[in-house]
Simulated assay, not measured.
Amino acid sequence: MASKQPSTKIKVCLVAISLGRGGAERATALLSRMLHKKGFNVSIAILNDMVDYPYEGKLFNLGALKTEPDTLSKRLARFKKLKAFFKEEQFDYIIDTRSRGSAAKDLFYLHYLYKKQRIIYVVHSFNIFQYFPKQQWLAKKMINKAEAVVGVSKAISEKINTEFETNKAITIYNPSEPFSEKETENPFSEKYILYLGRIEEKVKNFTLLLEGYKASKLSGGNIYLKIVGDGPDVDFIQQKIQEMGLSETVTLYPFTPAILPYVKNALYLTLTSRYEGFPMVLIEALSVGTPVLSVHCESGPDEIIVNKNNGLLIENHSVEALSEAMNTLAFDEDLYKTCKESAPESISHLTMDAIAEKWATVLKNKHL
Protein backbone atom coordinates (compact mmCIF):
# COMPACT_ATOMS: atom_id res chain seq x y z
CA MET A 1 0.00 0.00 0.00
CA ALA A 2 1.27 3.51 -0.78
CA SER A 3 2.70 5.50 2.11
CA LYS A 4 0.34 7.99 3.73
CA GLN A 5 0.62 10.98 5.97
CA PRO A 6 -0.11 10.38 9.64
CA SER A 7 -3.70 11.06 10.64
CA THR A 8 -5.50 11.04 13.96
CA LYS A 9 -8.52 9.42 12.30
CA ILE A 10 -8.70 5.94 10.84
CA LYS A 11 -10.02 6.23 7.27
CA VAL A 12 -12.73 3.79 6.29
CA CYS A 13 -14.63 3.31 3.02
CA LEU A 14 -17.88 1.34 2.97
CA VAL A 15 -18.63 -0.27 -0.40
CA ALA A 16 -22.31 -1.02 -1.01
CA ILE A 17 -24.73 -1.69 -3.85
CA SER A 18 -26.79 1.32 -2.75
CA LEU A 19 -28.21 3.04 0.31
CA GLY A 20 -31.82 2.31 -0.55
CA ARG A 21 -34.72 -0.04 0.08
CA GLY A 22 -33.04 -3.13 1.59
CA GLY A 23 -32.13 -4.16 5.12
CA ALA A 24 -28.44 -4.62 4.25
CA GLU A 25 -28.41 -1.17 2.65
CA ARG A 26 -29.99 0.36 5.72
CA ALA A 27 -27.42 -1.40 7.91
CA THR A 28 -24.64 0.11 5.78
CA ALA A 29 -26.07 3.61 6.21
CA LEU A 30 -26.31 3.01 9.96
CA LEU A 31 -22.72 1.77 10.06
CA SER A 32 -21.53 4.98 8.40
CA ARG A 33 -23.26 7.03 11.09
CA MET A 34 -21.96 4.88 13.95
CA LEU A 35 -18.36 5.03 12.73
CA HIS A 36 -18.60 8.77 12.07
CA LYS A 37 -19.87 9.35 15.60
CA LYS A 38 -16.95 7.25 16.91
CA GLY A 39 -14.48 9.59 15.22
CA PHE A 40 -13.62 7.59 12.10
CA ASN A 41 -13.12 9.32 8.75
CA VAL A 42 -15.91 7.70 6.71
CA SER A 43 -16.55 7.48 2.97
CA ILE A 44 -19.17 5.42 1.16
CA ALA A 45 -18.92 4.13 -2.40
CA ILE A 46 -22.20 2.95 -3.92
CA LEU A 47 -22.66 1.21 -7.27
CA ASN A 48 -26.31 2.18 -7.91
CA ASP A 49 -27.77 5.67 -7.63
CA MET A 50 -30.26 5.02 -4.83
CA VAL A 51 -30.14 6.80 -1.47
CA ASP A 52 -33.14 6.42 0.84
CA TYR A 53 -31.44 6.23 4.23
CA PRO A 54 -29.54 8.94 6.12
CA TYR A 55 -25.79 8.44 6.21
CA GLU A 56 -22.63 10.21 7.36
CA GLY A 57 -19.40 10.77 5.46
CA LYS A 58 -18.26 11.43 1.92
CA LEU A 59 -20.43 9.77 -0.74
CA PHE A 60 -18.80 8.50 -3.94
CA ASN A 61 -21.86 7.71 -6.06
CA LEU A 62 -20.70 5.55 -8.94
CA GLY A 63 -24.31 4.93 -9.92
CA ALA A 64 -24.83 8.61 -10.73
CA LEU A 65 -22.27 8.23 -13.53
CA LYS A 66 -24.31 5.56 -15.35
CA THR A 67 -25.65 6.35 -18.82
CA GLU A 68 -27.62 4.10 -21.16
CA PRO A 69 -26.72 1.86 -22.81
CA ASP A 70 -24.52 0.73 -19.92
CA THR A 71 -21.85 -1.04 -21.94
CA LEU A 72 -18.93 -3.05 -20.60
CA SER A 73 -16.51 -0.27 -21.52
CA LYS A 74 -18.60 2.24 -19.56
CA ARG A 75 -18.67 -0.05 -16.52
CA LEU A 76 -14.90 -0.50 -16.67
CA ALA A 77 -14.45 3.28 -16.92
CA ARG A 78 -16.51 3.72 -13.74
CA PHE A 79 -14.45 1.11 -11.91
CA LYS A 80 -11.28 2.92 -12.95
CA LYS A 81 -12.69 6.01 -11.24
CA LEU A 82 -13.39 3.93 -8.12
CA LYS A 83 -9.84 2.56 -8.21
CA ALA A 84 -8.51 6.12 -8.48
CA PHE A 85 -10.71 7.16 -5.56
CA PHE A 86 -9.25 4.38 -3.40
CA LYS A 87 -5.72 5.39 -4.39
CA GLU A 88 -6.30 9.09 -3.72
CA GLU A 89 -7.95 8.60 -0.34
CA GLN A 90 -5.54 5.89 0.92
CA PHE A 91 -8.07 4.22 3.19
CA ASP A 92 -6.99 2.18 6.18
CA TYR A 93 -9.90 -0.20 5.56
CA ILE A 94 -12.46 -0.98 2.93
CA ILE A 95 -15.59 -2.56 4.43
CA ASP A 96 -17.42 -4.41 1.66
CA THR A 97 -21.11 -4.86 2.50
CA ARG A 98 -22.26 -5.83 -1.03
CA SER A 99 -23.91 -9.08 -1.94
CA ARG A 100 -21.23 -10.91 -3.88
CA GLY A 101 -20.90 -14.46 -5.24
CA SER A 102 -19.97 -13.97 -8.90
CA ALA A 103 -16.56 -15.57 -9.44
CA ALA A 104 -15.62 -13.24 -12.30
CA LYS A 105 -16.59 -10.11 -10.35
CA ASP A 106 -14.95 -11.35 -7.17
CA LEU A 107 -11.68 -11.99 -9.01
CA PHE A 108 -11.88 -8.49 -10.54
CA TYR A 109 -12.39 -6.90 -7.13
CA LEU A 110 -9.73 -9.06 -5.48
CA HIS A 111 -6.95 -8.52 -8.00
CA TYR A 112 -7.78 -5.06 -9.32
CA LEU A 113 -10.03 -2.85 -7.17
CA TYR A 114 -8.90 -4.27 -3.81
CA LYS A 115 -5.25 -4.87 -4.68
CA LYS A 116 -3.06 -3.67 -1.77
CA GLN A 117 -6.16 -2.74 0.26
CA ARG A 118 -7.14 -3.98 3.71
CA ILE A 119 -10.59 -5.54 3.34
CA ILE A 120 -13.31 -6.45 5.81
CA TYR A 121 -16.20 -8.40 4.30
CA VAL A 122 -19.68 -8.18 5.84
CA VAL A 123 -22.17 -11.03 5.39
CA HIS A 124 -25.86 -10.19 5.88
CA SER A 125 -27.46 -13.54 5.05
CA PHE A 126 -27.31 -17.15 6.18
CA ASN A 127 -27.16 -17.96 2.47
CA ILE A 128 -23.43 -17.25 2.49
CA PHE A 129 -23.08 -17.96 -1.23
CA GLN A 130 -24.81 -14.65 -1.84
CA TYR A 131 -21.61 -13.18 -0.40
CA PHE A 132 -18.89 -15.64 -1.43
CA PRO A 133 -18.48 -17.57 -4.69
CA LYS A 134 -19.28 -21.27 -4.74
CA GLN A 135 -15.73 -21.94 -5.91
CA GLN A 136 -14.10 -22.85 -2.60
CA TRP A 137 -10.59 -21.90 -3.70
CA LEU A 138 -11.70 -18.37 -4.57
CA ALA A 139 -13.81 -17.90 -1.45
CA LYS A 140 -10.89 -19.03 0.70
CA LYS A 141 -8.56 -16.70 -1.17
CA MET A 142 -10.88 -13.76 -0.46
CA ILE A 143 -11.13 -14.70 3.21
CA ASN A 144 -7.36 -15.24 3.56
CA LYS A 145 -6.73 -11.76 2.15
CA ALA A 146 -9.35 -10.16 4.39
CA GLU A 147 -8.54 -8.60 7.73
CA ALA A 148 -11.80 -10.02 9.05
CA VAL A 149 -15.22 -11.29 7.98
CA VAL A 150 -18.16 -9.92 9.95
CA GLY A 151 -21.33 -12.00 10.14
CA VAL A 152 -24.40 -10.21 11.43
CA SER A 153 -25.49 -13.28 13.40
CA LYS A 154 -23.67 -16.00 15.32
CA ALA A 155 -25.09 -18.64 13.01
CA ILE A 156 -23.64 -16.86 9.95
CA SER A 157 -20.19 -16.50 11.49
CA GLU A 158 -20.13 -20.13 12.58
CA LYS A 159 -21.21 -21.28 9.12
CA ILE A 160 -18.47 -19.24 7.42
CA ASN A 161 -15.78 -20.56 9.75
CA THR A 162 -16.93 -24.13 9.22
CA GLU A 163 -17.54 -23.95 5.47
CA PHE A 164 -14.23 -22.26 4.63
CA GLU A 165 -12.09 -23.74 7.43
CA THR A 166 -11.15 -20.38 8.92
CA ASN A 167 -11.42 -18.49 12.18
CA LYS A 168 -11.67 -15.02 10.68
CA ALA A 169 -15.44 -14.71 10.90
CA ILE A 170 -16.70 -12.77 13.91
CA THR A 171 -20.18 -11.63 14.91
CA ILE A 172 -21.36 -8.03 15.14
CA TYR A 173 -25.13 -7.64 15.24
CA ASN A 174 -27.11 -4.98 13.40
CA PRO A 175 -28.13 -2.19 15.79
CA SER A 176 -31.48 -0.90 16.89
CA GLU A 177 -31.85 2.69 15.71
CA PRO A 178 -34.16 5.06 17.58
CA PHE A 179 -36.84 6.32 15.22
CA SER A 180 -36.43 9.96 14.23
CA GLU A 181 -39.99 10.35 12.98
CA LYS A 182 -42.43 12.22 15.17
CA GLU A 183 -45.63 11.18 13.43
CA THR A 184 -47.04 8.01 15.00
CA GLU A 185 -50.74 8.39 14.22
CA ASN A 186 -52.26 5.10 13.10
CA PRO A 187 -52.51 5.10 9.28
CA PHE A 188 -55.41 2.62 9.50
CA SER A 189 -58.69 2.56 11.41
CA GLU A 190 -58.73 -1.24 11.77
CA LYS A 191 -56.58 -3.65 13.79
CA TYR A 192 -53.82 -5.25 11.71
CA ILE A 193 -50.73 -7.39 11.74
CA LEU A 194 -47.80 -6.31 9.61
CA TYR A 195 -45.22 -7.64 7.18
CA LEU A 196 -42.54 -5.07 6.39
CA GLY A 197 -39.70 -5.70 3.96
CA ARG A 198 -38.67 -6.85 0.53
CA ILE A 199 -41.30 -8.48 -1.68
CA GLU A 200 -39.42 -11.57 -2.85
CA GLU A 201 -41.17 -14.93 -2.68
CA LYS A 202 -38.10 -17.20 -2.90
CA VAL A 203 -36.68 -15.68 0.30
CA LYS A 204 -39.64 -14.29 2.25
CA ASN A 205 -42.14 -17.10 1.55
CA PHE A 206 -45.33 -15.07 1.22
CA THR A 207 -47.18 -18.23 0.28
CA LEU A 208 -46.75 -19.45 3.85
CA LEU A 209 -47.71 -16.04 5.26
CA LEU A 210 -50.92 -15.86 3.25
CA GLU A 211 -51.90 -19.49 3.86
CA GLY A 212 -51.25 -19.11 7.59
CA TYR A 213 -53.34 -15.94 7.74
CA LYS A 214 -56.18 -17.54 5.77
CA ALA A 215 -56.22 -20.59 8.08
CA SER A 216 -56.23 -18.40 11.20
CA LYS A 217 -59.14 -16.72 12.94
CA LEU A 218 -57.78 -13.23 12.34
CA SER A 219 -59.89 -12.18 9.38
CA GLY A 220 -63.01 -13.36 11.23
CA GLY A 221 -61.89 -11.26 14.18
CA ASN A 222 -61.52 -8.19 11.97
CA ILE A 223 -57.73 -8.24 12.16
CA TYR A 224 -56.23 -7.35 8.80
CA LEU A 225 -52.86 -8.18 7.23
CA LYS A 226 -50.85 -5.25 5.84
CA ILE A 227 -47.86 -5.98 3.60
CA VAL A 228 -45.50 -3.02 3.09
CA GLY A 229 -42.55 -3.10 0.72
CA ASP A 230 -41.25 -3.34 -2.84
CA GLY A 231 -39.48 -6.03 -4.80
CA PRO A 232 -39.60 -8.29 -7.85
CA ASP A 233 -42.72 -10.22 -6.82
CA VAL A 234 -45.28 -7.47 -6.17
CA ASP A 235 -47.50 -8.64 -9.06
CA PHE A 236 -47.18 -12.27 -7.95
CA ILE A 237 -48.30 -11.39 -4.40
CA GLN A 238 -51.20 -9.28 -5.64
CA GLN A 239 -52.38 -12.18 -7.80
CA LYS A 240 -51.93 -14.62 -4.92
CA ILE A 241 -54.06 -12.42 -2.64
CA GLN A 242 -56.86 -12.36 -5.21
CA GLU A 243 -56.68 -16.10 -5.97
CA MET A 244 -56.92 -16.94 -2.26
CA GLY A 245 -59.94 -14.70 -1.79
CA LEU A 246 -58.13 -12.42 0.66
CA SER A 247 -58.57 -9.08 -1.12
CA GLU A 248 -60.90 -7.69 1.55
CA THR A 249 -58.50 -8.20 4.46
CA VAL A 250 -54.98 -8.30 2.94
CA THR A 251 -53.50 -5.20 1.31
CA LEU A 252 -50.10 -4.51 -0.19
CA TYR A 253 -48.56 -1.03 0.16
CA PRO A 254 -45.43 0.37 -1.53
CA PHE A 255 -42.08 0.86 0.20
CA THR A 256 -41.72 3.88 2.44
CA PRO A 257 -38.76 4.91 4.61
CA ALA A 258 -41.25 6.41 7.10
CA ILE A 259 -42.19 3.11 8.73
CA LEU A 260 -42.80 4.15 12.34
CA PRO A 261 -46.60 4.65 12.09
CA TYR A 262 -46.98 1.21 10.47
CA VAL A 263 -44.77 -0.57 13.00
CA LYS A 264 -45.84 1.14 16.21
CA ASN A 265 -49.56 0.68 15.60
CA ALA A 266 -49.45 -2.93 14.41
CA LEU A 267 -50.81 -5.61 16.70
CA TYR A 268 -47.63 -7.52 15.93
CA LEU A 269 -45.11 -7.98 13.13
CA THR A 270 -44.71 -11.22 11.15
CA LEU A 271 -41.77 -12.90 9.43
CA THR A 272 -42.04 -16.16 7.44
CA SER A 273 -38.70 -16.22 5.60
CA ARG A 274 -36.92 -19.29 4.30
CA TYR A 275 -33.66 -17.74 5.53
CA GLU A 276 -32.48 -14.39 6.87
CA GLY A 277 -29.37 -12.76 8.29
CA PHE A 278 -30.17 -10.67 11.34
CA PRO A 279 -33.53 -9.17 10.37
CA MET A 280 -33.57 -5.51 11.34
CA VAL A 281 -37.34 -5.35 11.01
CA LEU A 282 -37.68 -7.54 14.13
CA ILE A 283 -35.58 -5.26 16.29
CA GLU A 284 -37.27 -2.17 14.85
CA ALA A 285 -40.65 -3.54 15.92
CA LEU A 286 -39.44 -4.57 19.38
CA SER A 287 -37.85 -1.16 19.95
CA VAL A 288 -41.27 0.50 19.90
CA GLY A 289 -43.05 -2.20 21.91
CA THR A 290 -44.54 -4.16 19.03
CA PRO A 291 -44.30 -7.94 19.60
CA VAL A 292 -43.03 -10.17 16.79
CA LEU A 293 -44.06 -13.53 15.37
CA SER A 294 -41.39 -15.29 13.34
CA VAL A 295 -40.66 -18.70 11.95
CA HIS A 296 -37.47 -20.34 13.20
CA CYS A 297 -35.47 -19.84 10.01
CA GLU A 298 -31.72 -19.64 9.65
CA SER A 299 -30.55 -17.19 10.82
CA GLY A 300 -31.32 -14.36 13.22
CA PRO A 301 -34.80 -14.78 14.71
CA ASP A 302 -33.65 -17.21 17.41
CA GLU A 303 -30.95 -14.69 18.42
CA ILE A 304 -33.57 -11.95 18.80
CA ILE A 305 -36.80 -13.58 19.97
CA VAL A 306 -37.23 -15.01 23.45
CA ASN A 307 -40.26 -17.23 22.92
CA LYS A 308 -43.36 -16.05 24.84
CA ASN A 309 -41.35 -13.15 26.27
CA ASN A 310 -41.10 -10.64 23.41
CA GLY A 311 -42.93 -12.65 20.76
CA LEU A 312 -43.37 -16.13 19.35
CA LEU A 313 -40.76 -18.25 17.55
CA ILE A 314 -42.33 -21.17 15.70
CA GLU A 315 -41.59 -24.10 13.42
CA ASN A 316 -40.92 -23.05 9.82
CA HIS A 317 -42.85 -24.22 6.74
CA SER A 318 -45.93 -25.18 8.76
CA VAL A 319 -49.24 -23.50 7.95
CA GLU A 320 -50.81 -25.08 11.04
CA ALA A 321 -48.10 -23.83 13.41
CA LEU A 322 -48.26 -20.35 11.88
CA SER A 323 -52.04 -20.04 12.01
CA GLU A 324 -52.13 -21.25 15.63
CA ALA A 325 -49.41 -18.77 16.61
CA MET A 326 -51.24 -15.96 14.84
CA ASN A 327 -54.35 -16.77 16.87
CA THR A 328 -52.42 -17.08 20.13
CA LEU A 329 -50.60 -13.77 19.86
CA ALA A 330 -53.76 -11.98 18.73
CA PHE A 331 -56.22 -13.38 21.27
CA ASP A 332 -54.25 -14.45 24.37
CA GLU A 333 -54.38 -11.15 26.23
CA ASP A 334 -51.99 -12.09 29.04
CA LEU A 335 -49.33 -13.39 26.66
CA TYR A 336 -49.70 -10.36 24.43
CA LYS A 337 -49.32 -7.98 27.36
CA THR A 338 -46.15 -9.78 28.51
CA CYS A 339 -44.61 -9.66 25.04
CA LYS A 340 -45.50 -6.02 24.49
CA GLU A 341 -44.10 -4.90 27.85
CA SER A 342 -40.91 -6.94 27.47
CA ALA A 343 -40.19 -5.96 23.87
CA PRO A 344 -38.06 -2.78 24.23
CA GLU A 345 -35.84 -4.11 27.05
CA SER A 346 -35.22 -7.37 25.17
CA ILE A 347 -33.02 -5.55 22.64
CA SER A 348 -31.22 -3.20 25.05
CA HIS A 349 -27.90 -4.82 24.08
CA LEU A 350 -28.37 -3.73 20.47
CA THR A 351 -28.15 0.04 20.88
CA MET A 352 -26.19 1.97 18.25
CA ASP A 353 -23.59 2.94 20.86
CA ALA A 354 -23.05 -0.69 21.90
CA ILE A 355 -22.70 -1.96 18.33
CA ALA A 356 -20.51 1.00 17.33
CA GLU A 357 -18.13 0.13 20.15
CA LYS A 358 -17.79 -3.42 18.81
CA TRP A 359 -16.91 -2.10 15.35
CA ALA A 360 -14.48 0.43 16.82
CA THR A 361 -12.74 -2.31 18.79
CA VAL A 362 -12.24 -4.41 15.65
CA LEU A 363 -10.96 -1.52 13.55
CA LYS A 364 -8.64 -0.11 16.20
CA ASN A 365 -7.21 -3.51 17.14
CA LYS A 366 -6.57 -4.37 13.49
CA HIS A 367 -4.97 -0.95 13.00
CA LEU A 368 -2.25 -1.55 15.61
Results as ranks from 00 to 15, higher is better:
residue 350 L to N: 03
residue 359 W to C: 03
residue 342 S to L: 13
residue 355 I to F: 00
residue 337 K to W: 14
residue 342 S to I: 07
residue 360 A to E: 08
residue 339 C to P: 00
residue 361 T to L: 08
residue 357 E to P: 09
residue 348 S to E: 07
residue 352 M to Y: 04
residue 348 S to V: 12
residue 339 C to I: 11
residue 338 T to I: 14
residue 352 M to E: 14
residue 347 I to P: 09
residue 334 D to M: 15
residue 335 L to R: 01
residue 358 K to I: 03
residue 359 W to V: 03
residue 334 D to K: 12
residue 350 L to D: 01
residue 338 T to S: 11
residue 362 V to Y: 07
residue 352 M to A: 06
residue 357 E to H: 06
residue 332 D to I: 07
residue 347 I to G: 07
residue 362 V to H: 03
residue 350 L to W: 13
residue 362 V to E: 05
residue 356 A to E: 05
residue 347 I to D: 03
residue 344 P to C: 14
residue 358 K to N: 08
residue 344 P to L: 12
residue 347 I to A: 09
residue 347 I to W: 08
residue 357 E to L: 03
residue 358 K to G: 05
residue 332 D to A: 06
residue 348 S to I: 13
residue 334 D to V: 15
residue 338 T to Y: 11
residue 343 A to H: 06
residue 354 A to T: 11
residue 356 A to P: 05
residue 346 S to G: 09
residue 339 C to S: 04
residue 348 S to F: 07
residue 350 L to Q: 04
residue 338 T to E: 11
residue 333 E to A: 12
residue 359 W to A: 02
residue 358 K to Y: 04
residue 347 I to M: 11
residue 357 E to G: 10
residue 363 L to N: 00
residue 336 Y to L: 15
residue 333 E to Q: 13
residue 351 T to N: 02
residue 339 C to K: 05
residue 340 K to F: 03
residue 344 P to W: 11
residue 361 T to P: 05
residue 337 K to F: 13
residue 348 S to A: 13
residue 342 S to W: 12
residue 337 K to T: 11
residue 358 K to S: 07
residue 346 S to Y: 06
residue 358 K to F: 04
residue 343 A to M: 12
residue 360 A to N: 06
residue 333 E to F: 12
residue 353 D to I: 08
residue 348 S to D: 07
residue 352 M to N: 07
residue 362 V to R: 02
residue 345 E to Q: 15
residue 348 S to C: 07
residue 353 D to C: 04
residue 349 H to G: 10
residue 362 V to L: 11
residue 346 S to L: 10
residue 351 T to M: 03
residue 360 A to D: 06
residue 337 K to M: 14
residue 358 K to T: 02
residue 332 D to H: 03
residue 332 D to G: 02
residue 340 K to A: 10
residue 332 D to E: 09
residue 356 A to V: 00
residue 342 S to D: 10
residue 350 L to G: 01
residue 344 P to E: 11
residue 337 K to P: 00
residue 354 A to G: 08
residue 354 A to F: 02
residue 335 L to F: 05
residue 341 E to F: 13
residue 342 S to Q: 10
residue 334 D to A: 13
residue 353 D to G: 03
residue 333 E to L: 13
residue 338 T to G: 08
residue 362 V to T: 04
residue 359 W to N: 02
residue 357 E to Q: 09
residue 346 S to M: 11
residue 341 E to C: 12
residue 339 C to G: 01
residue 337 K to G: 01
residue 360 A to I: 00
residue 336 Y to R: 12
residue 338 T to V: 15
residue 337 K to A: 10
residue 349 H to C: 08
residue 359 W to Y: 06
residue 359 W to K: 02
residue 339 C to N: 05
residue 332 D to C: 04
residue 361 T to H: 09
residue 351 T to I: 10
residue 356 A to W: 00
residue 337 K to C: 10
residue 351 T to E: 01
residue 341 E to D: 15
residue 353 D to Q: 09
residue 347 I to E: 03
residue 338 T to M: 12
residue 341 E to M: 15
residue 349 H to A: 13
residue 337 K to L: 13
residue 349 H to S: 12
residue 362 V to D: 01
residue 356 A to C: 06
residue 351 T to D: 01
residue 335 L to H: 01
residue 356 A to M: 05
residue 334 D to F: 10
residue 342 S to Y: 14
residue 363 L to Y: 06
residue 341 E to H: 15
residue 346 S to I: 10
residue 361 T to Y: 12
residue 336 Y to A: 15
